[in-house]
Design a protein around this nucleic acid. Structure first.
Lengths: 335, 335
DNA sequence: CTGTTAGCGCTTTCAT
DNA sequence: ATGAAAGCGCTAACAG
């Protein structure tokens, strides 16, 4: 069943059926109504592939993430998908698994399926691959990565803002020995959090002890190891800020098993506000990075990029900042 | 850039290029080699939409789930996607949000995009919508739902097995007052767990007290409420089995806030083994439903269904059972 | 406002 | 083993 059958049954040409579907305002209301009836009656769905083939637009958007089982991403994916459904678009999701080879595969799939645009929400991206997209002039929205050529835009998470709030919060609670468990430092996003921590403390006149600076991997295990180191210190910290919630959860386990209590013995702050952060015991004070903000901003920007055939040029900002804020729960307390 | 350019540059017809890509064995090795060189050199990707249009096969599979932010699903999606990538397929994901209207939308999208098959991994499905798929003879794999017509197959999670193991485990630990917090009872999958609990206890000669049977909603909140009821009882249970992990986590919070301890005062067992289950304090004893098993089984079955144009007939089972097993962690203890 | 018609890029007979 | 050509279902010029 196809557009010709509909046309025949409605006694119009296929062009009129096509117009009724795509540009109803250009069709006589009565004709349109008749066509619509037939479409309904025949339960006709236009073939998107034929449509894409001739028009060059697929109404598909690509969404590339690191790993859907990383709790940072499901909410992002969901909000992005909600936007897509609302705007009559399909999305194709690619998991890179933090592997550049898989990332290349993802991009290839996106190109093959002729996506109208791609949102790359992973924290590191090979500029070569971005060049590939730019060469085909596929609109791209990036996260924490320099935009690659025209029709490309970057979203930056305001890590500093959140870390500053976290530091100030602990300072206000009279903490002075504050440790930091960083993420993997090859990531720009991890370094941004670490340096925000250091600079804020210094600007408040506190020198950061080397021992109090640990490095994790943004996973539970890294938090576990780092916290073990911290507890071995002669003078342990009274508070710890972790570069993300998973790290904080790892730290929490260690503290608990050492017979210490949060927040009574040690205050703990996370980062991201994944959904489990409010379910830990005690609920975790953390910096929220709104995944729905991120998704909506990314989608909206991408949609705008897709609509403009030309470069976005100077008229638009090439970068947008995503706010972050401290959410106080029960893992921090005054000393 | 298209297949004609490749053909011209390799001095062959477009048919030969097409064959080189799809049926290399039918092409002279030397010709094929020449064509392949040109393809590489031009960095040519075949247009999947043109391909689908003419062949009728899209190499896309649909995956419908309830809600990607429900921790049951990310691992399922990931494994399913892994399979798809391995087999050179694309997947389109649909979130129903537990809403029949959205489910209808998902199915419509799948049909529009001409998926080769659909895996519907939600727990409840409108038979009418399944009929729509059957009518278009789209292969379908269902979860805990009766198969709908030909080219359709059902996967059943062996809830009883897991619940039986959980009950036996608690019985072996000398628990006799065991409570059960059920899921929403309009779901067949929730009822299956509840009745497995009751029947196992009865077959062990223990009558189930009405008071000990609570109903939740498979979310945190339901677990919270149900556990509050349980703690109000004159004689509270020594152990609780929850219909899923989210429910158990809700219960855990309440127990903790009541000043009681798990497992010292109350043993607690969950169901699903979501990734957070091993991160609770204490780590949760729970019944594992392997999402990767589920995904791989679903994918494999779907692939088989897609390859057979005809009905699967009697040769194949119309239903497969997914095993479940107790994972003992530290939320249960002998009394 | 509506119809005619030429492709979009590919696969697939049917010849050779 | 290869090529010529038809056509998948649709959109978009163009003509009327």
């Amino acid at each position: 069943m196809n557009i010709r059958e509909v046309a025949k049954k409605a006694r119009v040409s296929t062009a009129t059926v096509s117009r009724t579907i795509n540009e109803p305002e250009k069709v006589n209301p009565r004709t349109a109504e008749r066509v619509r009836k037939v479409i309904e009656q025949l339960n006709f769905y236009p073939n998107t592939h034929a449509r894409t083939l001739v028009s060059g637009r697929s109404r598909i958007l690509g969404l590339i993430i690191s790993d859907i089982t990383n709790p940072f991403f499901p909410e992002l994916v969901k909000s992005f998908e909600d936007q897509a459904v609302t705007h009559g678009r399909e999305i194709i999701i690619g998991n890179t698994d933090y592997d550049p080879k898989r990332m290349a595969g993802c991009i290839r799939r996106m190109v093959e399926r002729k996506v109208d645009g791609v949102a790359i929400m992973t924290s590191e991206t090979d500029p070569q691959l971005l060049a590939e997209l730019a060469r085909r002039s596929i609109p791209t929205v990036l996260l924490d990565t320099a935009p690659a050529g025209p029709r490309s835009l970057t979203l930056s998470i305001d890590y500093a803002q959140g870390i500053h709030e976290a530091v100030d919060h602990l300072l206000a609670l009279n903490h002075r020995r504050i440790a930091f468990i960083a993420g993997p430092l090859h990531l720009q996003s991890a370094r941004a959090r670490q340096s925000a921590f250091i600079s804020r403390l210094q600007s408040r006149g506190i020198t950061v002890e080397e021992d109090l600076m640990q490095t994790g991997d943004h996973r539970i295990e890294g938090g576990t190891l780092a916290m073990e180191n911290l507890l071995k210190l002669k003078q342990r910290p009274s508070a710890v800020i972790a570069s993300n919630d998973l790290t904080a959860i790892g730290a929490l386990g260690v503290i608990f098993e050492a017979g210490l209590r949060v927040p009574d013995d040690i205050s703990l702050v996370g980062f991201d506000d994944i959904s489990f952060a409010r379910l830990t015991q005690p609920p975790l004070t953390t910096v929220r990075v709104s995944r729905s903000d991120l998704a909506v901003t990314a989608f909206t920007a991408l949609e705008k990029l897709v609509k403009n055939d030309a470069d976005i040029g100077d008229e638009t900002n090439r970068s947008e900042l995503i706010a972050t804020h401290l959410v106080e729960r029960r893992s921090t307390r005054a000393i």
